[in-house]
Design a protein around this nucleic acid. Structure first.
Lengths: 333, 333
DNA sequence: CATCATCATGTAAGCGCTTACAAGCCGTTT
DNA sequence: AAACGGCTTGTAAGCGCTTACATGATGATG
């Protein structure tokens, strides 16, 4: 069942059928209805490859995440998929791991598939201001298709970024911990991502403003995993009275460690997690966590994606979304 | 940069280039090398649409999950993606929700995209033996492309199933609970999935064998969510001395409820979860859970998928994978 | 040396669509 | 009534690839 069959059965040419398919305004209402009726009867669906070949949109967006089994990213993917599906778009999902070379390879592979645009989630990509990461391949990819970064920030043509105000939130939270008398604040992070860097910068700034010298042994890069966090603490036994972790799993690890050693939370130890995942509700006491408004971030991204694809109007390249803090049982302020 | 350019630069015809691309054996080693060199130099990648149009494989597999933000399914998707990527296949991901009509629509949309095969995760699809579900549209879809069900079981041409031995595990676990003196065992489930049904059947069989009459108020269909489980229990206050939940989130909810009301776990209450997710490690005590060997299930599925696509050899239509029980602090046997 | 099988390579059709351009139709205008 | 302009519709080329079939080269065989 192809466009020729439809054309024949409706008594028009294939060009007219194609115009109906693409909702062109150059078709009379009468013919349009007639053709649509036949298409419905025959349960006809256009062949994407033929469409793709002749230069049309592919109705497919590539999405790249480091690890889909991470709850944060899975939620992002779910939200993105929902929005794309609403617009009859498909999602090509690729999971790259965290290494830059792998990402590059996955991006290349996605681009081969002739997608309309690409979304990179949880990026380590940051722009010229940080200078810390090679973003060359990102910019190159953006020359082919519009690129959307979720929690990344690269200032270049055809790259659109949406990110949280992690620096401000982290600064504020750390300040509050200090105001509450904490001065040995453990900072736990699992990645070199743009978000993680901003969180760390906020943490350090707060210490600086309070005149507290940062203690290297309290700034730890570990894996984002309950058990490995516990093992790390068991091995190193850092001396701390508060903890700020860049993901809930690590914060839960800290809580487990504290309970095991009879440390009273939140009386003698405050714990703050990040991403407000279901883990935060599993523990007793429940975990105070930062809600990064993932839904809003994803929505903003997809909305702008469709604006770019439809080509109408100016689309802002950088958007910031404000997080909120969800107070629960592991902090007392 | 297309096949004509490559042909010209290597001084051969496009047919020869195509043969090299497809690794046909009808090309001399010398020409092959020459062409491959040019392709590498020019960074050439074939156009998927053109390939698709001329009837070739699309190198894309459609994957349908009800909800990617569910940890179990996210892990499945991650595992599947990894294996597909290894073989240079892409994954078209669609999230359908749990309603049959929606699933049908997503399946239709995926098929439009001319995928090579399709994987349905966490299915409510079960075959003629259960008779409970309309699997007609699944069977219809399977006429177009080979279908792979993860934890589903439909006995039809072109449908390949991989599932856990949920019945046996559930039977065994419930028996053990009974042997340990429990006789008011709460059964919590969130879905009408094939897996959930088998778990329930095992649970009921164990009661029957022990001569315990099933108590309707102890068999609950709720949402798979910590907080909603707690709310449910607060409202209904069932009288139980053990709990078997079809997912860890519900089991954690039970544990929270127990702790809140000062019930001693596992002394006065045994709790068993399912899927062995990270949640099981977040609580104190840690949650006893069933490891359903998702990795093996996914690997088995993808391996058979490639066997079917390559068309060589007999491929078994149904495969069962054995679960294991991970004993932790919420049970004491 | 003519004949033929074998293997490597080339030619051309066709996959189903979009779209520039051509053509036809019909009501207005001069 | 002829000429024109504005719509709608049709024709045909082309997107980049695969593959059946044709062709040419090479070497073996009678």
């Amino acid at each position: 069942m192809n466009i020729y069959d439809i054309a024949e059965k409706s008594g028009v040419s294939i060009a007219t059928v194609s115009r109906v398919l693409n909702d062109s305004d150059k078709v009379s209402e009468k013919t349009k209805e007639k053709v649509m009726k036949v298409m419905a009867e025959e349960d006809y669906t256009p062949n994407v490859f033929a469409r793709g070949l002749s230069g049309e949109s592919t109705h497919t967006v590539g999405v790249l995440v480091p690890d889909i089994s991470d709850n944060y990213m899975a939620r992002a993917v779910a939200l993105i998929e929902r929005r794309l599906h609403e617009k009859d778009y498909n999602m090509l999902l690729s999971c790259s791991g965290f290494r830059a070379e792998e990402k590059e390879e996955h991006i290349r592979m996605l681009l081969e598939e002739r997608i309309d645009a690409m979304i990179l989630v949880g990026s380590t990509y940051a722009g010229s201001d940080t200078k810390s990461h090679n973003t060359g391949y990102i910019e190159k990819a953006a020359q082919k298709k519009p690129l959307f970064l979720i929690n990344g920030d690269v200032d270049a043509e055809n790259i659109f970024c949406t990110f949280s105000n992690d620096y401000a939130v982290s600064l504020d939270l750390t300040k509050k911990l200090i105001e509450n008398g904490r001065n040995r604040i453990l900072f736990l992070t699992d990645s070199e991502s743009y978000s993680a860097k901003k969180k760390k910068a906020g943490y350090e700034k707060a210490l600086e403003e309070a005149g507290i010298a940062p203690i290297p042994s309290l700034i730890c890069h570990i894996r984002n995993n309950i058990d490995e966090t516990v093992s790390y603490l068991e091995e190193n036994h850092p001396d701390f009275d508060a903890c700020f972790a860049t993901d809930d799993a690590m914060a839960v690890g800290v809580l487990k460690y504290a309970m095991k050693h009879g440390v009273s939370v939140p009386k003698d130890l405050s714990i703050i997690g990040y991403n407000n995942s279901e883990l935060a509700l599993a523990t007793t006491p429940e975990l105070t966590s930062v809600d990064n408004k993932l839904e809003k971030i994803c929505d903003d991204t997809v909305i702008r994606l469709f604006s770019v694809l439809s080509g109408n109007g100016f689309v802002p390249r950088r958007t910031s979304v404000a997080c909120t803090v969800v107070q629960r049982g592991t902090t007392n302020h």
